[in-house]
Design a protein around this nucleic acid. Structure first.
Length: 564
DNA sequence: GCAAGGTC
C-alpha cells in the first residue's frame, strides 16, 4: 500500500500486491550450464537476483505507483519470508522514488479490528529478519547446485545408462533429511530382532459376558519367571476383587487446524496424499470456500467471527443441526498455542453444497474438524477392576461413553463402549481359565506420510507450504516409493546416497545440519549473529563436506552403485 | 537438467 500524501491523516491511498517473492537468486550466465565449471566453484561464484518475466509486470506496477506516492506501507505476511518479500518491495520502490517514507504494518489476521490496530501502530520493517532469509536463499542455491551437479555428473560417468533410470540425482537441505527419515525407519525395521515374551490372561464369564483380565506386569521376556508366577497363581487360583475405581474420562476434541494437521488428517483419514490435499485446498481457497490453507496457527484470534462461519453451516442437511447446537452452546474453541502471526487456522468461509469427489471429501473434513473444535469434549466413565490371585494382580477396564459431543460430527475418531460385568469389592470367584500366553515383539512399520510430515515439522525440515513438496520430490527422484498400503519405502538409490555419505563420515541425511542452520537464522533475526559471518561459516562447512566427497568419491559412489 | 521459499 502506498500513500499519496505527507501525513497519514487525510490522504489518498493506492493498494497493490505481490505474489510471493519477486526475485530469485541465480548464478551469472557463465555458470548456468552444467559443464561450464567445476561444481566446486559454485560455492564461491558470484550470484545475482533475477526477476522472472511474470514478476516483471508486478515490479513495473510497484515502480509506477511508487513514483506517485510519498509513503509506503508494507502489508506482507508477518513471518520470516514475508519480511523478506517486504524488503524486495522496498528495494524496488525506493529505486523508483528515493524520498519515500517506509512503514511496516504488523497484523496477524485480516479482520477489521486487526487491520485497524496495525494501521494505527505502524512499525519499521525488520532488516535482520529479511537478512536471515537471504542467507538461507544463497546457501540453498549454492549447496543445491554444487552437490546436485556433482552427484549427477559423477554418477553418470560410472553408470553410463543412468539417464534411462534417473533423470538427475539431487541434493537439497530439505530433500536429504526427508529421505533420511524414511531410510532410518526402513533400517530399524530391517535390523529388528524379534524378542519373545510371555504373559498371563485370566478369563471369567459373568452376566453373560466374557471378561479377560490382563496381567498387571503386562509381559515378561523370561519364560522361567512367567512359569514361576503361573505356578504360584495355580497353587491358589481363587480371585478376590481388590479395587473398583470409576473415573470420569474425557476425549478431547481436536485443536483448530493448521496445515500440518490438515495434511496429516487428509492423508490418514481420507487416504489422499498430502501433495494432492494441498492442491485441492488451494482450489477451495481460491473459490472462497475455505480460508488460507498455509498456516502454522492453531488458535482462533479473538476477532475472528466464529459465529458467522458456524451460522453458514446450519444450511447443511447433514451437519446443519450440529452447527446449530454449537451456536446454542458456544462456540467454544479448544485453542492450541501456536501462531505464525500471519494466518488464522484453516476454517470454512462459505457453505459449499455442490462439490464433488476429493474436493467434497476434503471440504467436509475441514467443516467437521472446524465444528468439532467448537463443540465439547466427549465424556465417558472408565471402570477399572483389579483382582488378586495369590497376590498376583490382574486388571480389567471397561468404558461407557456418556456424552459423544464432538464425536457426533467428527466421525473420523472412534471411542466406543467396552462393556464389563458388575463386580463388588472383596468379591471372590474362581476364574474359568488362567492361561499363559506367548508372543513376540514386532518390527516397526514403514513410515506413513502422516508420520513423515510429523517428523519434518518436529525437526524443522521445510515449512507448512513445502512439506508435501519435499516428499513428492524424493519420490520423483526415485529415492523412495509408496507401497500399495501407503507406506514409504526407500529405493536402492536413496539408501545408497544415505549410506555413501555415512561411509565417508557425514550425516548429510540427518536433520541436525538443517536444524543448526535454523538456529543460526534465528540468531540473525535476534541480532545475535551477523548474516555474512553465518553465511561464510555455513558455506565453509559444506565446502569441507564437498571436498571430502571429492577426495573419497570412489568410496562414496561405490556404495551408491552397489545399491542401485 | 540443480535448492527452497513464496504463490496460482
Amino acid at each position: 500500500m502506498s500513500v499519496h500524501h505527507n501525513s497519514l491523516g487525510d490522504c489518498q491511498m493506492s493498494f497493490t500486491s505481490v505474489s510471493g517473492h519477486l526475485f530469485n537468486y541465480d548464478f551469472y550466465e557463465d555458470k548456468r550450464k552444467w559443464w561450464s565449471c567445476e561444481p566446486k566453484q559454485l560455492f564461491t561464484a558470484p550470484i545475482l537476483q533475477t526477476c522472472s518475466d511474470q514478476n516483471k509486470y508486478i515490479k513495473n506496477t510497484l515502480e509506477r505507483e511508487a513514483k506517485r506516492c510519498s509513503v509506503l506501507i508494507i502489508w506482507t505476511d508477518c513471518d520470516r519470508e514475508g519480511e523478506n518479500i517486504g524488503f524486495e518491495v522496498i528495494t524496488v520502490c525506493r529505486a523508483a522514488n528515493p524520498r519515500m517514507n517506509i512503514f511496516r504494518a504488523h497484523f496477524s489476521e485480516i479482520t477489521i479490528p486487526s487491520i485497524t490496530r496495525a494501521f494505527n501502530a505502524l512499525i519499521q520493517p525488520n532488516k535482520k529478519v529479511s537478512d536471515a532469509v537471504d542467507v538461507r536463499q544463497k546457501l540453498d542455491l549454492r549447496l543445491g547446485a554444487a552437490f546436485t551437479r556433482f552427484l549427477t555428473l559423477e554418477l553418470q560417468k560410472l553408470v553410463p545408462n543412468l539417464k534411462d533410470m534417473y533423470k538427475l540425482v539431487s541434493y537439497g537441505s530439505c530433500q536429504f533429511p526427508t529421505l533420511g527419515f524414511v531410510v532410518d525407519r526402513f533400517k530399524a525395521r530391517e535390523n529388528f530382532v524379534p524378542q519373545k515374551f510371555w504373559s498371563i490372561d485370566v478369563h471369567y464369564t459373568k452376566d453373560n459376558m466374557n471378561a479377560c483380565f490382563n496381567w498387571k506386569r503386562v509381559r515378561v521376556f523370561c519364560e522361567q519367571s512367567c512359569l514361576a508366577v503361573m505356578s504360584k497363581v495355580m497353587d491358589s487360583p481363587e480371585a478376590v476383587v481388590t479395587h473398583i475405581n470409576t473415573k470420569r474420562r474425557t476425549k478431547w476434541r481436536p485443536q483448530p487446524m493448521d496445515t500440518v494437521t490438515f495434511e496429516r488428517s487428509v492423508s490418514s483419514k481420507l487416504k489422499i496424499n498430502a501433495k494432492r490435499a494441498m492442491t485441492v485446498a488451494e482450489k477451495l481457497y481460491t473459490s472462497g470456500f475455505i480460508s488460507y490453507p498455509r498456516t502454522e496457527t492453531n488458535k482462533f484470534p479473538p476477532e475472528l467471527n466464529l459465529v458467522s462461519y458456524c451460522q453458514m453451516q446450519t444450511a447443511s442437511p447433514i451437519w446443519g443441526q450440529f452447527a446449530q447446537r454449537v451456536l446454542t452452546n458456544g462456540p467454544n474453541p479448544r485453542n492450541g498455542t501456536k501462531s505464525d502471526q500471519a494466518h488464522p487456522p484453516i476454517h470454512p468461509t462459505k457453505y459449499a453444497p455442490n462439490l464433488n469427489g476429493e474436493e467434497k471429501r476434503i471440504y467436509e473434513l475441514i467443516v467437521r474438524h472446524f465444528l468439532a473444535t467448537l463443540d465439547k469434549d466427549a465424556v465417558g466413565y472408565e471402570t477399572a477392576i483389579e483382582i488378586s490371585i495369590n497376590e498376583e494382580l490382574f486388571a480389567l477396564n471397561g468404558l461407557r461413553v456418556e456424552e459423544k459431543n464432538y464425536l457426533e460430527i467428527y466421525t473420523y475418531d472412534k471411542w466406543t463402549d467396552k462393556d464389563i460385568p458388575q463386580f463388588n469389592q472383596n468379591e471372590r470367584f474362581i476364574p474359568d481359565s488362567i492361561l499363559m500366553t506367548d508372543g513376540q515383539t514386532t518390527a516397526p512399520e514403514l513410515l506413513t506420510e502422516a508420520q513423515l510430515i510429523a517428523l519434518m515439522e518436529k525437526h524443522g525440515i521445510g515449512t507448512d507450504a513445502t512439506h508435501a513438496e519435499h516428499i513428492e520430490k524424493v519420490k520423483d527422484r526415485k529415492y523412495i516409493v509408496e507401497t500399495p498400503d501407503r507406506r514409504l519405502k526407500p529405493e536402492g538409490l536413496g539408501i545408497g546416497l544415505v549410506d555413501g555419505y555415512e561411509e565417508i563420515g557425514y550425516q548429510m541425511s540427518k536433520p541436525h545440519l538443517r536444524a543448526a542452520l535454523e538456529k543460526d537464522l534465528k540468531a540473525i533475526c535476534d541480532g545475535i549473529k551477523n548474516p555474512e559471518e553465518v553465511l561464510n561459516y555455513q558455506i565453509k562447512e559444506y565446502e569441507k563436506v564437498f571436498n571430502e566427497s571429492l577426495r573419497h568419491k570412489n568410496k562414496l559412489f561405490e556404495v551408491v552403485v552397489r545399491k542401485i
